[in-house]
C-alpha cells in the first residue's frame, strides 16, 4: 500500500509552501552567544545527567538560564554547565572498532557462570 501522506507538524507546512526548504547551514554569526551543555543532578546521591543545551554570554548566565529552561519543576538540586566546544566525543563511525575489545568477553558478566541450583544468595 503506498498511500500519499503529507503530515504537517506544528507550524511546518512542507516545502511546497516555501517552508524554509532551502536552508543553508554555513555558520556566519559571530555575535551569537556561545552554546553550553547543561547537566542536572536530579537528586542528592545521583549522577549529573545531560539535559540539553542553551546559549549564554558566560558561565554565570548559563547557570541562571539553565535554571529557567531546564528546572522549572524542581528537576534538579545541582547544575553543571560546560561550553559545548570543550566536549570531546567518540566518533560514531568508529564505534565498531572502539568497543571491539569488550565484544567477546561474556565472562565479565555474572550470568556467564553455571552454578548448581542449591547455591543461594550469590
Amino acid at each position: 500500500m503506498s498511500f500519499q501522506i503529507n503530515k504537517l507538524y506544528y507550524g511546518d507546512y512542507g516545502e511546497s509552501k516555501n517552508g524554509a526548504a532551502d536552508i543553508s547551514t554555513t555558520q556566519q554569526n559571530i555575535a551569537e552567544w556561545p552554546l553550553w551543555e547543561v547537566f542536572i543532578r536530579s537528586k542528592q546521591g545521583l549522577d549529573h545527567k545531560h539535559a540539553g543545551s542553551l546559549h549564554a554570554a558566560d558561565a554565570a548566565m548559563a547557570i541562571e538560564n539553565a535554571r529557567d529552561v531546564y528546572t522549572r519543576r524542581m528537576e534538579g538540586v545541582s547544575l553543571w554547565v560546560v561550553e559545548s566546544k570543550y566536549i570531546h566525543a567518540s566518533n560514531p563511525d568508529e564505534a565498531g572498532s572502539l568497543y571491539d575489545p569488550a565484544n567477546d568477553k561474556a565472562y565479565r558478566h555474572p550470568t556467564f557462570y553455571d552454578l548448581p541450583e542449591e547455591v543461594k544468595y550469590m
Binding site: S2, F3, Q4, I5, N6, K7, L8, Y9, Y13, G14, E15, S16
Partner: peptide, 19 residues
Amino acid sequence: GPKDDESPNSIQSMKWKIK
C-alpha cells in the same frame, strides 16, 4: 493539516519515521 488524499508530498517522512 490538509486531508490525506489531497497531499502532494511523498511517503519519505513515513519511511524515515519522522512522521
